Simulated assay, not measured.
Amino acid sequence: MLAKRIQPMMAQARRLYVQVMFQVMGRALQAVSEVDDTVKKEALALPNGFLFEMMVMPNGPRMVVEHTGLGRFHYHGDEAPRPVDLSIRFKHIAHAFLVLSFQEKTAVAFANDRMLVDGDISYAVRMTRVLNRLESFILPKLIAQRAVKEYPRNLHLPQKLISGARIYLKVATNFVETVRA
């Protein structure tokens, strides 16, 4: 009996968690593109105006990020200003929760057929590398090693702390600016 009452609350909690994580990730993608040269170099290969979305099917939480040029990303929230160029879609909220709570690597989720990629695969690989780099900066090493396919060997503690702090500061500033607007 108790389980029947808890299940809907758990589903709502997962959905809220995924929604918040998409907001944080979108803002963090914008921030890391301002902070890290490796991310800028990866993003430079994307066309200007390139729109990337990550979402839960069919109408679940989503984030939309645009490459504005010069290796910079801009977070659009959950609304795309035009059709997206690349979409990574989780088939179910539980699948998104597994990845975004760092219980399952993105590559493993894809191998387990928990997500779909709609768009150019080379762009998807590039965006996955950007997301992995971001996670390496903003997560503790122990968790990041579980989340990314390969933790960067050349990412040392001082760089991680300084870049991570800059990213978190920019994310917090972006949240505050959004609330004020």
Rank of each mutant, 00 (worst) to 15 (best):
P81G: 00
L98T: 07
I138L: 04
R82G: 09
L51P: 00
A94N: 14
G164L: 02
M127N: 03
V179Y: 13
V125T: 12
L16Q: 12
A111F: 13
R62A: 15
Y151T: 00
L116W: 10
R72N: 05
D85H: 11
T68F: 05
M54D: 04
L157T: 13
G164K: 04
A45P: 03
I138G: 04
R166I: 10
V117M: 11
A181G: 15
R82A: 14
E177I: 12
A11V: 12
Q159A: 15
R15W: 07
F52T: 03
Y123C: 13
G49H: 04
R129H: 14
A31M: 00
I121Q: 09
A11Y: 05
A13R: 07
M55C: 14
A3W: 09
S101K: 04
L142A: 15
V20D: 14
S101E: 08
A124I: 02
L29I: 03
H95C: 09
A147Q: 08
L134N: 07
I162V: 13
V64H: 01
L2W: 01
F90G: 01
R27Q: 10
R62V: 04
R72V: 06
G164W: 03
L51H: 02
R180K: 12
P140L: 01
E53Y: 02
A45I: 07
M127S: 06
G60C: 06
G164D: 08
Y123N: 14
L161P: 04
Q103E: 10
T38M: 09
Q159Y: 11
M9Q: 14
K149V: 11
Y75L: 02
L98V: 05
K160C: 01
N132H: 10
A124T: 05
F102D: 10
E177A: 14
K40D: 01
T106H: 11
M10R: 08
A144I: 08
Q12L: 15
Y168H: 10
L131Q: 13
K41F: 11
N154A: 09
L169V: 05
S163K: 13
E135W: 15
E79F: 11
A107D: 12
P61V: 05
H95K: 05
V179D: 05
D85R: 02
T173A: 15
K40M: 11
I143E: 01
T68M: 11
V18K: 06
E177C: 06
V24D: 11
I6M: 03
E177M: 15
E177Y: 06
R146N: 12
A109K: 05
R89E: 09
F97W: 13
R153K: 14
G164I: 07
K149L: 15
G71D: 03
A96D: 03
G69P: 06
L29E: 01
L134G: 04
R5K: 12
Y75K: 02
